[in-house]
Design a protein around this nucleic acid. Structure first.
Lengths: 149, 149
DNA sequence: TTGTCGTCAATGCAGTTGCATGTAACACTC
DNA sequence: GAGTGTTACATGCAACTGCATTGACGACAA
């Protein structure tokens, strides 16, 4: 087990710090506008991409969250009226999660605020080339990590 | 308020996902080895860098955490014996946080596991050049964001 | 059809967080 | 040195999280 290079460690520390800072800022912007947290947006967005609905287990995969986190997030979203939880006719264990109209409206209402926040905190710090390079590097991590390397 | 470019949005989404994946993996590695969470390591590391001790408020700044988060993190670290909380002779409100011997030993014990995890999940996915580029881009975000841009 | 095992989801409980507020001490003015 | 405001840290409470377990169903073999 060798040690990571200085460069690797620096990248890791920067990832932790940048995420903590930016995530906090974006969440604060959403909250200041009276909106629920980012996770709600993410979940509803996934549902909008799947008009026929998604099973909880699929949502779990997309969001990289633990099973019980999804279960409770879905519970809150349902209570708030942003999604419906239907029995899965194909599998008695599963639930089909479907975006409601109110959920779609929430997405539409949140996006301008969310977008402005992304632009403010990231967009204004990076050139287009920077942003592309950053996305590519992070995606390398994701694809590698997905395979447990 | 314009909207962020596609590239900016892609970078943001990748940041969220990469962080969630890698952070989860590294925390899991630490836990599997019987160690406390990353935040404990970070806090103790900051203290080791300041042999004369740090005030809680300084730790707050370094770690980008909310005041009450620090307060409770410090409480747990003290209960576990990894730091001491001394009155500040200069300021009756403040506390000076000092790493104990046990705290130093914990850092030493955790590092090999932590380092191996960083290497495994990041190091093996990126070339040296990649890692350097990633760190630089993320640090751009940090410095920009620190100024609330 | 019964038994065994794997999968999908929910939940009790203990620990943790966020928010709002509380307490104490410093700083500055008059 | 009393009044006003600010800073450092702690904490009650409600909400949230992680862990372990449960419950319900499906799949597959004998």
């Amino acid at each position: 087990m060798g040690y990571p290079s200085k460069a690797t460690t620096a990248a890791w520390v920067a990832l932790l710090r940048a995420h903590r800072l930016l995530f906090g800022q974006v969440e604060a912007d959403l909250k200041a506008a009276g909106f629920p947290p980012l996770a709600w947006y993410d979940a509803l967005l996934e549902l909008r991409r799947a008009p026929a609905g998604l099973r909880a287990v699929d949502l779990e995969e997309h969001m990289l969250l633990a099973q019980y986190s999804i279960s409770r997030l879905v519970e809150r979203l349902e209570r708030a009226g942003y999604l419906e939880r239907r029995p899965d006719p194909r599998d008695g264990r599963g639930r089909i999660l479907v975006l409601t109209e109110a959920g779609g409206e929430l997405l539409a209402a949140m996006w301008p605020v969310y977008a402005a926040s992304i632009r403010k905190h990231l967009g204004s710090a990076l050139t287009k080339k920077d942003a592309e390079a950053l996305a590519e590097l992070l995606n390398k991590l994701l694809h590698h990590g997905g395979e447990q390397g």
